[in-house]
Nucleic acid binder design. Structure first.
Length: 484
RNA sequence: GGGCCGCUAGCUCAUCUGGUAGAGCAGGGGACUUUUAAUCCCAAGGUGCCGGGUUCGAGCCCCGGGCGGCCUACCA
């Protein structure tokens, strides 16, 4: 308020708060208008509104639990003048009795107040808030105060992750942390971020998936293991993609993909119940019901349903190529029938699936880590969970055999050589781990951000990531760096 | 990456076919003893994203750049 280096009055180092706004309301649900209790409380938060009325003043205090009205009077409030000169956005602590005004609004009477921090910049419009999404994402510290939706979404995100942990823990799954810096990027087909370790003088990659490390842990005897963590993919951004996002990956020894379907649908049904109180949610003006069991259908069946064409790995390649041309899919020479079918599915079918639905039996060609289907040659025991036209999760019976895994890796390397920058490379330590023996195992990956989007009704991934990736605010003005 | 759209006061928005920028809120000053986005009065607040061009004159038209949004493409 004066010299910024010598705040006056001095800001305390610690302040003992007795109640949140919500706690005050919970303890006094039915206070009659115009009554004063004999309970003195101390609350703290930001002053979001103030209404001066001469010798009295009203304020709205907001904390992480909600809002409560403050009532100050020139008679009873110490430093009443100071109270009426607070700025919107100032952090204050208030001590006083709990009361209800004549209009019946539950309030804390301001007997004393202490400034905990000044808002030196003006807060956004108290009614309209911030509408510019760029400002909301860059200055989330303001957005969180000003938009209830943002606060609610991140509160719910925390509850969703907690519910997942709790439910998995109840089923004896052990949470682990595996490396984010990988010498070989693996576990998914995606382009990695590259970095350099100086002491080792070696390239390292930010992980694109924890998969191969988690399966090493199953080899090591961790029969039920999961990780919730950030993964990084150097690819496009959109309302559904952020370069870093959060994935749940889970591995379950002795189980197959059919059991995994049951585990996941129950997990997500349960999380929806825990967090929203119902298995049914509204999303994009339509209903989604997460109640188990979810529908299961093979990719080939669904292509028949939505594109009206019959395809399978037995379909001659020329026919598949002709279908791709008909549906506007770009075909490369390296594409085998499996890749062509997947392309047809993604072009014609996936976005039409409202779900939740399990799309099962992916071609082996596009599933380099999945175990071959026990009955259908060329297919794998893999499924994706599709909700609202988008992939929410991906799972399969894991490929166990090191020789076959090596062959699949080599196929991937051939595709990489043919120009596919997302194709995998051989991970020989992973093959060595498989040599020690991976038991039958089912594995799962769930996009947590997308799950949060569904359960919070948001259609932009940036609304569920506190600090989404953005272009640098002040581009480097060095003209020598202005190439490209 | 491609297409379309946007950028005006701290925030939310106006400014007709080009004529030299205006309101609410916030911030400052004042009035007010029960308000709920309080109300009322006063004053202040602008590199119109940046850089060029056309024009007597550009926030508005043209070109280039920056940042963002939506759609599209790849992916979760």
């Amino acid at each position: 308020m004066t010299d910024p280096n010598t705040e006056y009055p001095p800001v305390p180092y610690r302040f003992d708060v007795t109640h949140t706004a919500a706690a005050v309301a919970a303890e006094h649900p039915d206070l009659e208008p115009g009554t004063e209790t004999d309970q003195t409380v101390t609350v703290a938060g930001r002053m979001m509104l103030r209404r001066d009325q001469g010798k009295i003043a009203f304020g709205t205090l907001q904390d992480s639990s909600g809002r409560i009205q403050l009532f100050a009077t020139s008679k009873l409030t110490e430093e009443f003048e100071g109270f009426t000169s607070l700025s919107i956005g100032d952090w204050i602590a208030v001590t006083g009795i709990v009361m209800a005004t004549r209009r019946g609004e539950l309030s804390v009477r301001v007997d004393q107040f202490t400034v905990l921090a000044n808002a030196r910049r003006p807060f956004p419009d108290k009614w309209h808030g911030i509408s510019d999404p760029d400002v909301r994402y860059r200055q989330r510290y303001v957005d969180l105060w000003v938009s209830d939706d943002a606060r609610d979404a991140f509160q719910k995100r925390s509850e969703i992750v907690a519910a997942i942990r709790s439910r998995l823990s109840d089923q004896q799954f052990v949470e682990v942390e595996t490396p984010m810096l990988h010498p070989i990027p693996g576990g998914a087909t995606a382009r990695p971020f590259t970095t350099h370790h100086n002491a080792l003088d070696t390239e390292l990659y930010l992980r694109i998936a924890p998969e191969l490390y988690l399966k090493r842990l199953v080899v090591g005897g961790m029969e039920r293991v999961f990780e919730i963590g950030r993964v990084f993919r150097n690819e496009g951004m959109s309302t559904r993609h952020n370069p870093e996002f959060t994935m749940l990956e889970l591995y379950w020894a002795y189980a197959d993909y059919a059991q995994m379907m049951e585990l996941v649908e129950k997990l997500i049904e349960g999380v929806a119940l825990d967090v929203t109180g119902s298995t049914k949610i509204q999303y994009d003006e339509r209903e989604i019901d997460f109640a188990a069991p979810w529908r299961r259908a093979t990719m080939d069946e669904l292509i028949m349903e939505h594109a009206g064409v019959e395809v399978s790995l037995d379909t001659p390649r020329e026919e598949l190529v002709a279908l791709c041309e008909r549906f506007g899919v770009e075909v490369r020479d390296s594409y085998g029938p499996g890749k062509l079918i997947l392309e047809i599915y993604e072009k014609t079918t996936e976005a039409q699936l409202w779900g939740p639905i399990y799309v099962t039996d992916y071609p082996q060609e596009v599933s380099p880590l999945s175990r071959a289907h026990r009955d259908k040659p060329g297919y794998t025991e893999r499924f994706e969970g599709i909700v609202a036209g988008r992939e929410l999760l991906n799972a399969f019976s894991e490929l166990l055999d090191p020789a076959e895994q090596l062959a699949r890796f080599e196929d991937q390397e051939a595709e990489k050589a043919a120009g596919d920058e997302e194709a995998m490379v051989v991970d020989s330590d992973y093959l060595r781990a498989l040599d020690y023996g991976l038991p039958p195992t089912a594995g799962l990956g769930v996009g947590i951000d997308r799950l949060v989007m569904l359960l919070t009704g948001t259609t932009t991934i940036r609304d569920v990531i506190l600090f989404p990736t953005l272009r640098a605010e002040s581009p480097t003005l060095d003209p020598s760096a202005a190439d490209e």
